[in-house]
């Protein structure tokens, strides 16, 4: 399991490969599921140029570790990776990556979705977008279900 908060930009698909190669679980997993959230250039009717992501050092990592561990207990998972950006993020850059590995697709699909929804609803991150109407704190996330 790996949880990381990162200031520098990353390529989610390169991160998946890099982490998977480090696991040495080839042959044990039959399913990989992942979610990648990336920076849009719009929010509703406003153009967005970039944003700043703030977090609560300590609590954010603790929260993410808890939801990852709970998922490992609930589903038959071989591993979980959660990577999340902070700081200044430009349009097109990846913001979040969740990946799960299991023997069969049901566990990988369901756990990846559940981790992502719990992250969106409870992980202490806050987005401030720079828009055509000025800098605006995003007030709430769109519902996932």
């Amino acid at each position: 399991m790996m949880i990381e908060i990162r200031k520098k930009s990353f390529n989610a698909y390169a991160e998946i490969k890099y982490y998977l190669d480090s696991l040495n679980i080839a042959g044990e997993y039959g399913a990989t599921s992942n979610f990648v959230g990336s920076m849009r250039n719009f929010n509703k009717d406003k153009k967005v140029t970039h944003m700043t992501l703030e977090y609560y050092p300590g609590m954010t990592e603790k929260y993410l570790e808890t939801i990852a561990k709970e998922s490992i207990d609930k589903w038959m998972l071989l591993d979980v990776l959660i990577l999340h950006r902070i700081g200044k993020i430009n349009v097109g850059e990846d913001i979040v990556l969740v990946a799960t590995w299991s023997a069969h697709r049901k566990d990988a699909f369901e756990s990846c979705r559940a981790i992502m929804e719990q992250l969106k609803s409870g992980a202490p991150f806050w987005k401030k977008e720079e828009t055509s109407a000025g800098a605006i704190w995003v007030e709430k996330n769109t519902p996932g279900y």
Partner: peptide, 10 residues
């Protein structure tokens, strides 16, 4: 103790 708005990560 921490006070903060609704979270908006991901």
């Amino acid at each position: 103790v921490a006070f903060f708005p609704s979270v908006t990560g991901g």
